[in-house]
Amino acid sequence: QIFVKTLTGKTITLEVEPSDTIENVKAKIQDKEGIPPDQQRLIFAGKQLEDGRTLSDYNIQKESTLHLVL
């Protein structure tokens, strides 16, 4: 699982696999929060994550925290 922290300070927990794409993660966030993926920007280690890449591409491991910017 990974954590996604929103600007409001809320933390969302997501069940993911390293092979999941960023697009996939955004879809999971939409399921939980109702935020359309095209409004979501995910930041990890100061980098904006691209939809077509996977979590493992960015070396995002379990218990990692991503930041969600709208």
Rank of each mutant, 00 (worst) to 15 (best):
Q30K: 11
V25M: 05
Q30S: 11
L68W: 02
P18W: 15
L70K: 07
V4P: 01
D20C: 09
A27C: 12
V4W: 01
S19H: 12
E23Q: 13
F44P: 00
Q39L: 10
E33R: 05
T21Q: 04
N59K: 09
T8I: 08
K5P: 01
H67L: 12
Q40S: 04
V4I: 13
N59L: 07
S19M: 11
L68N: 01
S19I: 07
S64T: 08
N24W: 10
V4D: 01
V25H: 00
K5R: 12
E50G: 04
T65C: 09
A27S: 12
Q40I: 12
S19C: 12
E15I: 13
Q48M: 15
K32R: 09
Q61S: 12
G46R: 04
L66Q: 01
K62I: 14
K10M: 10
D38H: 15
D38I: 11
P18Q: 08
E17S: 10
L42C: 01
L14K: 00
E17N: 11
L49G: 00
G34A: 05
L14R: 00
N24L: 15
I12T: 03
I43L: 11
R53V: 07
D57R: 02
L66T: 02
T21N: 05
V69K: 07
L7A: 13
K62R: 07
Q48Y: 13
K62C: 12
N59I: 04
T65R: 05
Q30D: 05
K28Y: 07
D31S: 12
A45W: 09
E23M: 13
N59Y: 06
K10H: 14
L42K: 00
D51A: 07
K26M: 06
P37Y: 10
Q40T: 05
I2D: 01
G34S: 05
P36F: 05
Q61F: 09
T11V: 15
D20G: 03
E17M: 12
E50Q: 09
R53L: 12
L42G: 00
V4K: 00
I29F: 03
K62H: 15
L68P: 00
E15M: 13
D51T: 05
D51S: 08
Q61T: 12
T65I: 15
K5Q: 12
T8F: 13
I60Q: 01
T21K: 09
N24V: 14
T11L: 14
T13F: 08
S56D: 10
T8Q: 12
E15Q: 11
K62D: 15
K10S: 08
T13N: 06
I35V: 08
D31P: 02
I22E: 00
T11W: 08
L66C: 01
E23D: 08
H67W: 09
K47R: 11
L66R: 01
I2F: 03
V25F: 03
L55P: 01
G52T: 10
S19T: 13
S56P: 03
S19W: 12
V25L: 12
Q48T: 15
Q1I: 15
D31W: 08
P18F: 15
L14W: 01
Q61I: 12
G52Q: 11
L70E: 10
D20Y: 07
L66M: 05
V16P: 01
I43C: 14
P18V: 10
T65Y: 08
I43V: 09
P36T: 06
I35E: 02
E15N: 11
V4Q: 00
T65S: 05
F3E: 04
L70I: 15
D20F: 06
Q30W: 15
E15R: 06
D31V: 14
D38K: 12
L42T: 00
S64V: 07
Q39H: 12
L42M: 03
V16W: 12
L70H: 10
E15A: 10
S64R: 03
H67C: 15
K47G: 06
G46I: 02
L66Y: 02
L14M: 04
L42R: 00
E50H: 08
H67G: 06
T6Q: 07
I2C: 03
G9Q: 04
S19A: 09
R41C: 15
K28T: 03
I2Q: 01
R53F: 14
V4M: 02
D20A: 07
V16I: 09
T65K: 05
I29Y: 02
E33M: 13
E15K: 07
R41T: 15
E15C: 15
K5I: 15
V4S: 00
K5D: 05
L70R: 08
Y58H: 04
K32Q: 11
R53I: 06
K10P: 05
K10L: 13
V16Y: 15
D51W: 03
K62L: 15
P37Q: 11
K26T: 02
E33Y: 09
E33C: 15
I29C: 02
F44Q: 03
K26E: 01
S64G: 06
Q48F: 14
G34T: 03
S56Q: 13
K26V: 02
D57N: 05
I35T: 07
L49W: 01
K47M: 15
E50I: 08
V16L: 07
E17F: 11
T65F: 07
R41W: 09
